[in-house]
Simulated scan of single mutants.
Amino acid sequence: MSAELTLDATDRALIRALAEDAQASAGALGRRFGLSQPACWRRIQRLRAAGLFRGARLDLDLARLGFGVTVFLGIKLATKGRVSLEDFERAVSAIPEVQIVEHVLGAFDYRLRVAARDLPDFERVLRRRIMTLPGVGNVEANVMLSEERRPGPL
């Protein structure tokens, strides 16, 4: 965030509202927060220009789309010298079932969120795609049983 950008209570309220519904109109948000549509639109554009929004996304219901299993993988790279982190990140990001790639500090080098149709489908993705990536060493899998809270406004 830019040093010269100062957020007031209305800016913070707009950010929370847009985090809940990125498609909310400036008119509806303006009515909600006591602003005219143009004033609200200008605030949103100022926040966007400052780089506070990285984009809008659909919140997909993976189970309804046929992806009934979510697995979190911890990946420890075997040889960091022979394969660059960028090479691994580029290769793992090209796997469609891998939803999130996080470079982390701790027992693992990376944490992945993988969506699969079922456990045999996950096994196929793990064996044929993830385990064949350059530099993969140890892998630890945790199957998600339920998700109680989705990422949202701070």
Rank of each mutant, 00 (worst) to 15 (best):
P38M: 09
R54F: 01
L60V: 14
V136E: 07
E147P: 04
I95N: 13
D59L: 03
A49C: 04
L73R: 06
S84R: 10
T10D: 01
L105G: 11
A56P: 01
S25K: 07
C40M: 15
A91F: 11
A24F: 01
P120M: 10
P153T: 00
A17N: 06
C40T: 07
R82E: 14
L47A: 07
R32H: 01
L119A: 13
E148N: 10
S84I: 06
A107P: 04
D8L: 03
A17M: 12
I44Y: 02
C40H: 05
S2D: 13
A24N: 03
L154W: 08
E97N: 14
E86K: 12
A22L: 10
G34V: 04
A63Q: 08
L14P: 00
E102S: 14
A49P: 02
L47E: 04
R32P: 00
P134I: 09
T6E: 08
T10W: 01
G74D: 10
V125E: 06
G137A: 12
D21P: 04
L77Q: 10
W41F: 12
R32V: 00
L145W: 08
G135K: 14
P153H: 00
L145N: 05
T79D: 15
L133W: 06
L47S: 07
V125F: 09
Q45A: 08
L119K: 10
